[in-house]
Structures are given as structure tokens and as C-alpha cells.
């Protein structure tokens, strides 16, 4: 198993090795030690490898991930799994701002809390947060799902497009053009599948409320100008 101790090995070597994995290569499990808050750890992965990071990471860990499964045994700094395409990223601790920002696919699981702007501008990613999320989460969310087992902060889903938000706890306030919507059977099914994929047990989909776009800002209307 390739092992990188970031207290001794430069980050460049880790990312270079991850980018150089040839199709069919045998080394499919990487371990990273002592990240101590380093930035850009395991970014731009393209191969279906498993990367286990022992410790907390800084900005943009697992950025633009495709196919890889990356697990952070610690907390993640701003922009974890930003613009993820596919694969899975799991944060055992908390995540800072911008978790899963602009993500286009794959699954991001945060076992602790996520700070502000979780899922900002999300474009197809699925995000499951076991704890709470901060303010401005799913701002301008275009597509994908954000599932929150705890509470949401201010201005949830501001300027939302078609991302679907499920919150089990309280929502401090909804952003412009975000409204609570009915949980229809298909939403229960989608949510149940996401919870299962994220390893959440003992929670019923009936405990969640769904939020989505009111679609009032989709085309300019003078009567909605106060929202601008």
C-alpha cells in the first residue's frame, strides 16, 4: 500500500503518484499520514483508488475528485471535494466553509458539522451532513441533493435553482426564492437511498422536510424586484 507521510514527503509527490495511476494498476489503496492541515491533499484524482487520510486537512482536499474514494479521519478545511465529478469523499470530523462547492457528481458525507456555504453552487453532487450546516448553504444550488440530519443556518437555499434540500432539524431562515415543499413518495425514495449510501441508520425519511426553489426569480418580474 503506497504510504505518504506529509511531514516528510512533499505534497507534490502524493498528488503526482495519484495522477500517475495506470489503468489496471494494483496499488489501489493509498494512505496519507500527518497532513496537519495541508492544502490540496489528494486533488484531481481520476482513478478508482481509495485514499485514507489520517488527520485533518486544509483547503480543497479531494478537489475535483473523479472516481476515487477519499476518507479524511479528521476535519476538513474550506472547499472539501469542491467541484467533485464522481466518487465518494467522507469526512469523519467537521468540514469548513464551501464543502462540496460546485460539485457535479459523486457523494460527499460529512459526519460532523459543515460550516457556511455547504453545497454552494452545487451542480449535481449529493451531500449528506450528519450534523448541522452553516449559513448560505446551497446558495444558487443548481442540481443534486443536500441532506442535513441536524439544523441549517440562515438563508438556506438562497437563489436556488433545482437542487433538492432535505433537513431533519430546524432551518434558521430560508433564502430568497427557497420554500418548503411537499415530500412526495419519490422524494422519500431518493432520500432513503441517499441515507443508505451515506451509512445513516435509525433515521426515518418522514423526519425530514424538503426545500426547493419557488422559481419566482427564474425570469425577471418587476413584482419580485425586492429580492434583487
Amino acid at each position: 500500500m503506497p504510504y505518504f507521510d506529509l511531514s516528510e514527503t512533499p505534497l507534490r509527490e502524493l498528488n503526482r503518484a495519484l495522477h500517475a495511476i495506470a489503468p489496471g494498476a494494483n496499488d489501489r489503496e493509498f494512505e496519507v499520514a500527518n497532513p496537519r492541515g495541508s492544502h490540496a491533499v489528494a486533488v484531481g484524482c481520476q482513478a478508482p483508488v481509495a485514499v485514507t487520510i489520517k488527520g485533518s486537512v486544509g483547503y480543497y482536499c479531494a478537489g475535483m475528485n473523479s472516481a476515487a474514494t477519499i476518507t479524511v479521519h479528521g476535519s476538513a478545511g474550506p472547499g472539501v471535494a469542491e467541484n467533485m465529478m464522481s466518487g465518494t469523499v467522507i469526512v469523519e470530523g467537521d468540514a469548513s466553509q464551501y464543502a462540496g462547492a460546485t460539485g457535479r457528481g459523486g457523494l460527499l458525507v460529512i459526519k460532523g458539522n459543515a460550516a457556511s456555504r455547504c453545497g454552494i453552487s452545487m451542480k449535481g453532487i449529493d451531500i449528506v451532513v450528519h450534523g448541522d450546516i452553516g449559513h448560505m448553504s446551497a446558495f444558487m444550488g443548481q442540481s443534486g441533493h443536500l441532506v442535513v440530519l441536524g439544523n441549517a443556518g440562515d438563508a438556506l437555499g438562497d437563489s436556488l435553482y433545482e437542487a433538492k434540500l432535505f433537513v431533519r432539524g430546524t432551518v434558521k431562515s430560508l433564502g430568497a426564492d427557497c420554500v418548503e415543499k411537499e415530500m412526495r413518495p419519490e422524494h422519500h425514495a431518493v432520500l432513503a437511498a441517499l441515507l443508505e449510501k451515506a451509512g445513516v441508520t435509525g433515521v426515518e425519511t418522514t423526519e425530514f422536510k424538503r426545500y426547493g426553489s419557488a422559481r419566482k426569480l427564474y425570469n425577471f418580474n418587476i413584482d419580485n424586484a425586492d429580492a434583487y
Binding site: L11, N15, A40, Y59, G63, G79, E82, Y98
Partner: peptide, 30 residues
């Protein structure tokens, strides 16, 4: 629909954060 583009980047603000964003883009593109 009318598409409004954001005026700030979604995952960083300011030159100190930009330095880290550049590091990420450089690492991704070797």
C-alpha cells in the same frame, strides 16, 4: 430561465485564499 452569474467565486475570497486556490489548480494539472 434567466441565468445570473455570481460576482464572487464560490469557494474563496481575497488574495490570501486565492493563493491556496492556485495551489490546488496547479496540483491538479501537475
Amino acid at each position: 430561465i434567466d441565468q445570473r452569474s455570481a460576482c464572487r467565486h464560490p469557494d474563496w475570497t481575497g488574495p490570501d485564499d486565492l493563493e491556496i486556490k492556485i495551489l490546488e489548480l496547479r496540483e491538479i494539472t501537475d
